[in-house]
């Protein structure tokens, strides 16, 4: 730069001189606290997962011992199997209900707002509350089974929640009850964002309403399908409160999930090392869902940028 002798700028007062620093003083601490706690905590838990820590953290490296024992345990195997059943059932059911409601609500329904409010309210209520109420309804000695028997159908059975084979499906139902309104909201927003001219063009082409949905609208909102499914999948991996309140993981281990295993290992059995290993495994499950999705989002962004 050419700065031949001229005064660069008028002299600044001390306040003006301080101002740029003050900005950094305000700007950085909260950002740093966030960044440090995210990276630091993840790193620390990962480290603990490689140590022999039990009730208090130790700093001796024991390699993959904790991972081996977690992966070899029946508890974890059942939790993973349950996660697969719950994940599949929950995602399919929630997406199906959400999409159905969204398409039906798109038909110029009277009282659309009231219905939407009803469909979505479960998301505003704590899983603890939801789980508690559902546990009563599903409890055979006090809930739906008793109601139906009281109406005269003495042979009626609905005891999934205490049935080892069926208990996991009660979690699916309660989970879908909670989240399907949310899926509906996302789908409806997607359907409403489709270019109105597309509808007109399809109508002029002679397509009936259901064909328009099948051939025009749904193909146009497929990215929303992927987003909804990813969101729901990672809900399932993190699900804790719902199961804790509905079944507590039981009967036996019938509704055990990885998140409960982590809690159990860390705070009930006092095995911090092993609990941390389970937590890291949970994170890996989550990354297995999220990383492909982020890659996909990036790819789409780049592709759109190229075609845009």
């Amino acid at each position: 730069m050419n700065v031949q002798g001229r005064p660069a700028a008028p002299r600044r007062s001390w306040r003006a001189a301080l101002a740029p620093w003050l900005v950094h003083l305000v700007l950085w601490p909260p950002l740093l606290v966030s960044v440090v706690h995210i990276i630091g905590f993840t790193g620390y838990t990962s480290w603990i997962s490689f140590t022999s820590s039990t009730l208090i953290p130790e700093n001796d490296f024991v390699g993959l011992r904790n991972y081996n024992s977690v992966l070899a345990s029946r508890n974890w195997a059942i939790a993973t199997e349950n996660l697969l059943i719950f994940g599949t059932g929950f995602v399919v059911l929630t997406t199906a209900i959400g999409l159905t409601l969204a398409v039906l609500l798109d038909q110029r329904i009277r009282a659309e707002n009231v219905l939407r409010t009803i469909y979505l309210y479960p998301m505003a209520v704590s899983f603890v509350v939801t789980g508690t109420v559902w546990s009563w309804l599903l409890n055979p000695s006090i809930g739906i089974q008793k109601l139906v028997r009281g109406l005269g159908w003495e042979a009626f059975r609905f005891d999934w929640v205490v049935d080892r084979d069926m208990a996991i499906y009660t979690i699916v139902i309660a989970g879908a009850w909670q989240a399907s309104g949310f899926a509906m909201a996302l789908f409806l927003a997607g359907i409403r964002s489709v270019d109105a001219d597309l509808y007109k063009a399809a109508q002029i082409d002679g397509a009936g309403p259901w064909r328009i949905y099948r051939r025009v609208v749904l193909p146009a909102i497929w990215p929303i399908f992927i987003a909804v499914m990813v969101i729901l999948l990672q809900y399932t991996i993190k699900t804790f409160d719902l199961v804790r309140a509905l079944t507590g993981g039981g009967p036996g281990l019938a509704t055990q999930l990885p998140s409960l295993v982590v809690y159990d290992l860390m705070f009930q059995r006092g095995l911090l090392g092993r609990g941390s290993a389970a937590a890291v495994l949970m994170l890996l499950y989550l990354l297995a869902v999220l990383l492909p999705y982020f890659a996909f989002v990036q790819w789409r962004k780049r592709r759109n940028a190229r075609h845009g």
């Binding site: 730069m1 050419n2 700065v3 001229r6 660069a8 700028a9």
Partner: peptide
């Protein structure tokens, strides 16, 4: 690179 002068005053750092 280069310089900007406004009203005869170098303003690169202003």
């Amino acid at each position: 690179e280069g310089t900007i002068e406004i009203g005869g005053r170098l303003v690169n750092d202003v």
